[in-house]
């Protein structure tokens, strides 16, 4: 039947992928032993993303399969990005409503002669 026509991932490929994943795990642990300052998080995330893409494309067969499934995954990931980004838009700027430090409208009003009524 038709399922016999599915792409069969060769054992050689699978073995190569698991080897890469193992090495990358060691790399990420090793990288974490050094303090790279603000690069700590991006490097850890970059390595994790590379690992995940290997699992997705080869182990899960997304590379060989139906493109619709890749689109589904992409849409899901976009939503995760939306979720994180928009919440950070709030949490990173929390309190800016009442921020009246230098350079704000309030202050410029105070320095302007028209605002002498203060």
């Amino acid at each position: 039947m038709s399922q016999a026509e599915h792409h069969i991932v060769p054992i050689k490929t699978l073995t190569a992928v698991i080897a890469v994943l193992g090495v990358l795990t060691i790399v990420t642990v090793a990288a974490a032993q050094f303090d790279l300052g603000s690069f700590n998080v991006p490097i850890a995330l970059l390595i994790a993303t590379i690992k995940a893409s290997f699992v997705i494309s080869i182990f899960m067969g997304l590379k060989y399969g139906n493109k619709t499934n890749a689109l589904i995954l992409a849409v899901g990931l976009i939503m995760v990005v939306v979720f994180v980004t928009f919440i950070l838009l709030d949490t990173e700027f929390r309190g800016d409503t009442s921020a009246t430090e230098s350079g704000t409208i309030m202050q410029s009003e105070q320095t302007m002669p028209a605002a002498e009524s203060h």
């Binding site: 139906n66 589904i72 995954l73 899901g76 939503m79 979720f83 994180v84 919440i87």
Partner: peptide, 27 residues
């Protein structure tokens, strides 16, 4: 298979909630 992929993105979004919490509290 397509149904499974759709299910998987629901799982991703489920976990994304916790990743968001992590990100916010870490920042």
């Amino acid at each position: 298979k397509m149904g499974m992929w759709l299910f998987l993105i629901t799982e991703i979004l489920l976990f994304s909630g916790m990743f968001v919490l992590y990100t916010v509290y870490r920042s």
